[in-house]
Design a protein around this nucleic acid. Sequence first.
DNA 1: GCCGTATCTTACAAGTGTAAGGATCAGCGG
DNA 2: CCGCTGATCCTTACACTTGTAAGATACGGC
Lengths: 247, 247
Amino acid sequence: MPSSPGRQRTPRTSLSRERILAAAVQVADERGIASVTMRKVAEHLGVEAMSLYHHVANKDEILDGIVDVVFGEIELPVGQFDWKTTMRRRAVSARHVLARHPWALGLMESRRHPGPSTLRHHDSVIGSLRAAGFSIGMAAHAFSALDSYIYGFVLQESNLPFRTTEELEDMAETIVQRMPAGVYPHLAEMIADHALQPGYAYGDEFTFGLDLILDGLERALLGPGAPARGGPFRQTGADRSAPPPPG
Amino acid sequence: MPSSPGRQRTPRTSLSRERILAAAVQVADERGIASVTMRKVAEHLGVEAMSLYHHVANKDEILDGIVDVVFGEIELPVGQFDWKTTMRRRAVSARHVLARHPWALGLMESRRHPGPSTLRHHDSVIGSLRAAGFSIGMAAHAFSALDSYIYGFVLQESNLPFRTTEELEDMAETIVQRMPAGVYPHLAEMIADHALQPGYAYGDEFTFGLDLILDGLERALLGPGAPARGGPFRQTGADRSAPPPPG
DNA sequence: GCCGTATCTTACAAGTGTAAGGATCAGCGG
DNA sequence: CCGCTGATCCTTACACTTGTAAGATACGGC
């Protein structure tokens, strides 16, 4: 408890690694990842740039850190529902979190040091799948497929240059203008007869693909038949334990 | 045709928008997207920075341009196969191209002006789906699901800090070191008993998820039942009613 | 009052996009 | 052959911004 403030500045021990990361996340959200500089982050905290170096080693640590902060915001799978519901909730949460911090996906490409929240998250997902009966190999398949879909969807969502219907109409007009003689006819049709229809929102596409994958995984889990390809995948026997080192 | 070179420099009319974009792509591939500066690109062409401004308006035009160059490298769907094969070939090509230029995904987030190759690509994909009998809405679903998966997979592929088995082992060791008392047990199991097994390559996961989506789409196309959302769907009669593909 | 630490001030060297104007060239009419 | 013209390329320069090193200063707890 700060006894006698006297000054308008925040009390002395206000700075901390956590507060710095939180400020960096806020700056990235508001002004884009390129605006995350030591000075801007410090300014956001009412502090000078050099002060940050008493709590973080350098800028890279901040970048690694905020990626982990984002992963920490994703709802962890809890075991009270069936695996499908759990995975769906996790996916929906991940989508919302990543949509709130779209720069996080771009950062992933350049970061090579997963933080504790990230590892915890991955561990929890794999654990849920294993508990549901997926073999190691099938859990890897499921994990990869689900996360790929989630990441890619968010990427497209933040890529498509329209978030409001208004922006979409502007964008559509721009595209239509670039079709002097009916080039891109199918694109035009999709925009006019689908995307511009009242009530359309790209975000709604998410559940379709998600359920497509979840249902496919369920089929792979229940019926050991060939869920994909028509061939190779079976989840019985050989897959059940650690794969025999070939040769 | 340069008549008398005389000098060692490239002939006069060597520069062009295309050559500039190609050089920018090369710089991004070799040194990362952050190294794509006017000076570096110019240097790669044996030219000074300001010379570029005679062929491109500014740096943004270069960034928009190289994203479009990448999309231009993706194999366009051709109509000689069934839609599933076509989509699979397209997806595999897209994955390879994007893996070759991993910075392109990060750029997408900040670019708002799709170029002609991008539009042509999207148009072609939608056209293939429509020709196969997908309704507009279902084509939108399919397009979204497939591209989300492709983008996300590439993102993960370039995110995972290992491309060679050697790097993977280093990485695994690092992670294992961070588990003093068996935190992340499932992650540890997956790394030890799966990812580190001989012959494992993350890239192989691609086809599993891809075929999962393609098979799901096929089911949605054949039996127009509710493929997503509802319970574990089956292919029998009950679903048969559903929205008739708009005539 | 003293001490260690958290914070601020100052500074630097490097790198950025690009504006303004000078140099160099090919192709041309004389 | 000459010199002109207009495009293309180079040189110089500017105004910023970046991460962070070094040292001075202010503060809370003893």
